[in-house]
């Protein structure tokens, strides 16, 4: 059974990553929609689902962290080591980030009673705090807390959440809602806000990603095109490039002047949905790559 641990670790990481980027995406999409209330209910439900998923997944990740620390020997060993794991740097960061989640869940219920901007900004603040503790939980923490590496990792996580979360929720929730409600011009305006924010986020993803990879590999980039790990990296890169290609097409479409037709809105909705699927694939590949060192594949 302990051989299941690596698979469980990849699955838990992938689901957790999809959940937190979805929470960030739901809040950002709500901000980009503007004054319209179209899709409000679905975005709130998405935030609620993501919060519940994270509340359940983080304890699983904690258990799997414990299993990893004792060498993936047995379920009992992992269970017994959990109190000790709580005193480690990663364990503490995971527990603190978990404590923020009930607040996010509560906010998803109170959203309708809070004013749009206040509620959304409060939610974004909570997600940012959650990501800050997540950046304390990784390799970036090896030089200690509040270092440049942790700051870069924090920026990286925030920009990834903005890019992938924004696109996933736009493609799967917001764009279909706006298109089906015949708010074609609002879809165009929403798309422009999304595109502007994502351009900035993407620049930060690339800059911080290069820094993280350089630091993480001790200042030398080992070419791995002939290993399974390297091939998975190439697969992820292919998804990233396809998503970028789709993003460029969407950006080109957004240049079309208003008013928009049904056809333009339909194309936009379809392209955003495809981009959303590609972003989910990128997240799954990332979880796979981050949880298995090259030698273990």
């Amino acid at each position: 059974m302990p051989t299941l641990f690596p698979v469980m670790r990849i699955c838990a990481a992938a689901f957790t990553d999809v959940a937190y980027v979805s929470a960030a995406g739901a809040l950002l999409n709500r901000l980009w929609i503007g004054r319209l209330s179209t899709g409000d209910k679905k975005l709130r439900a998405c935030l609620r689902t993501a919060s519940v998923a994270l509340l359940l997944l983080l304890p699983v990740q904690f258990f799997l962290l414990s299993a990893s620390m004792v060498g993936d020997t047995s379920w009992t060993d992992a269970w017994q080591a959990m109190p000790d794991v709580a005193s480690t740097h990663s364990g503490r960061a995971l527990l603190i980030s978990w404590c923020l989640l009930p607040c996010l869940l509560l906010l998803s219920f109170l959203f309708s009673s809070l004013s749009r901007i206040k509620g959304t900004m409060l939610g974004i603040g909570l997600v940012v705090c959650f990501l800050a503790f997540r950046s304390f939980n990784g390799h970036a923490a090896s030089d200690g807390d509040f270092t440049l590496r942790e700051a870069m990792q924090f920026l990286h996580l925030c920009s990834i959440a903005t890019w992938s979360g924004g696109v996933i929720i736009a493609g799967l929730i917001t764009a279909p809602c706006l298109a089906s409600a015949n708010h074609f011009d609002d879809l165009a305006l929403f798309g422009r806000r999304l595109s502007q924010t994502i351009t900035v986020a993407l620049a930060i993803v690339i800059a911080t990603g290069i820094y993280n990879s350089w630091e993480g590999q001790g200042g030398s980039l080992v070419p791995l095109p002939h290993t399974p790990w390297g091939r998975m990296l190439l697969l992820k890169l292919s998804f990233v490039l396809l998503a970028l290609g789709h993003g460029a097409r969407v950006r080109f479409l957004l240049k079309a002047p208003l008013p928009w037709t049904d056809r333009q809105a339909t194309i936009m909705r379809r392209w955003l949905r495809t981009e959303a699927m590609l972003m989910i694939a990128v997240i799954v590949c990332s979880a796979w790559l981050a949880n298995l060192p090259p030698g273990e594949m």
Partner: peptide, 18 residues
Amino acid sequence: STVIALSVAAAPSAFAHA
């Protein structure tokens, strides 16, 4: 340049061991 930048940025720190 974009492909090179992305391939570097896309590589997580999987070598991260002590």
